[in-house]
């Protein structure tokens, strides 16, 4: 791994970590949702510190350059994150649908009882 890549990884990790903490303090991000981001930033810092380990693993796995392995890890991390988000969105959408139905049914009940009186 080149020194430039290692520096970039560390800087980005630190920025994302700070951003995470800031957003949690502003209560715009839930702690549970930030866990993956935090783990991710630790992972990238470790990867840049112990670059010889990364080089060892990537050569054992048959990558042409360690940087390719680093990119693969980042892409995998993003895909997992994306998948988790998709599940969250679906769950939220179901919950909103249930609320939507609940409100409609309550409104209907209210209207019908007021009409009867």
């Amino acid at each position: 791994m080149t020194i430039t890549l290692r520096i970039i990884l560390v800087i980005l990790s630190v920025i994302s970590f700070i951003l995470c903490v800031k957003k949690i303090k502003e209560s715009k991000l839930k702690v549970i949702n930030s866990v993956t981001w935090m783990i991710g930033s630790f992972l990238f810092v470790f990867m840049s510190i112990f670059s010889s380990a990364v080089e060892y693993i990537s050569s054992k796995l048959g990558f042409m350059a360690p940087v390719n392995f680093v990119f693969l890890v980042i892409i995998a991390f993003l895909l997992v994150q994306n998948f988790i988000d998709n599940i969250r969105i679906s769950t939220l959408s179901e919950k909103i649908k249930d609320l939507n139905h609940y409100i409609a049914l309550e409104d209907y009940k209210k209207n019908n009882t007021s009409n009867d009186n």
């Binding site: 909103i96 649908k97 939507n100 139905h101 409100i103 409609a104 049914l105 409104d107 209907y108």
Partner: peptide
Amino acid sequence: ISLPINYGLTSGIQ
């Protein structure tokens, strides 16, 4: 019965 948010045919049938 009126839904407060537009949520599509599936939601309506459900």
